[in-house]
């Protein structure tokens, strides 16, 4: 897969993540995807103290904030890297037996296991991560493992580096989309364009820009 297609896929994946994270909180409204977490001035000081620690993701927050998206992206990248290591090892072990034709099927259980392991460890370290969208993170790991087949590379370091860069790119796309939405939801735009349509347009713009960059580099 060439760089441009990979970037476009990552942007599409990031957009799907944003829409899913958004709609998981408000199932009835595909409202603007901007970050609108304004603190409630009437809340008591005690509630403000608890709200200061950002409640992560779906269970509590109405709209995922930039920080939530960053955590989501970093966790996804972490699971992608773990999946890459695991699938590379399994591939090396199974290669002499010629059992595997497609590494995509290998990524499915390995990504699930890696996500479960990451959830197990990190929630003991930082309890708020319990609210992270772990199934979505596992799905991201599968998608990125298919886009960047780590098991196919003979060298573990290369596989790991590629997976990490893909995960980092996914995180950047997630943040860039959120930042674009925060800036490019003009009030003068037609009402039908508000929210998801403008987000799709923004994602298209981002992909176009990244494609140009890919052509520039490669």
């Amino acid at each position: 897969m060439d760089g441009g297609a990979l970037i476009a896929s990552l942007v599409a994946l990031a957009l799907a993540n944003r829409v899913l994270l958004e709609t998981a909180t408000k199932p009835m409204a595909l409202s603007p995807l901007g970050n609108s977490a304004a603190p409630d001035p009437t809340a008591s000081p005690h509630a403000a103290a608890t709200a200061q620690t950002p409640s992560l993701f779906v269970s509590t927050n109405a709209t995922p904030t930039l920080r939530d998206l960053a955590v989501h992206g970093v966790l996804s990248a972490l699971v992608v890297c773990l999946t890459a290591i695991a699938s590379w090892i399994v591939q090396q072990a199974l290669a002499p037996l010629a059992l595997l034709h497609s590494t995509a099927f290998l990524a499915l259980p390995l990504a699930a296991a890696a996500a479960a392991l990451t959830a197990f460890v990190t929630t003991r370290w930082r309890a708020p991560l319990r609210d992270a969208a772990w199934p979505l993170i596992a799905a991201n790991a599968v998608a990125i493992a298919v886009l960047v087949p780590a098991a196919a590379t003979p060298d573990l370091a290369t596989a790991l580096l590629r997976s990490f860069l893909a995960g980092a790119g996914f995180t950047l796309d997630l943040l860039a989309l959120a930042a674009l939405d925060a800036r490019l939801q003009p009030r003068e735009a037609p009402a039908a364009f508000h929210g998801l349509p403008l987000s799709l347009l923004n994602a298209g713009l981002l992909t176009l820009a990244a494609q140009g960059l890919a052509g520039f580099v490669g």
């Binding site: 103290a49 608890t50 620690t53 992560l56 920080r67 960053a70 955590v71 970093v74 966790l75 990248a77 972490l78 890297c81 290591i85 990190t122 370290w125 930082r126 309890a127 708020p128 991560l129 060298d155 573990l156 370091a157 790991l160 580096l161 990490f164």
Partner: peptide
């Protein structure tokens, strides 16, 4: 060796990023 050092580097990177992004909760 490259793979091992890269793994350690990435582990440190992820730990640092999550450490900065998710603050430690204090007992109320």
């Amino acid at each position: 060796l490259a793979a091992l050092s890269l793994t350690l580097l990435l582990a440190a990177l992820f730990a640092f990023a999550l450490h900065r992004l998710v603050p430690a909760t204090t007992e109320p």
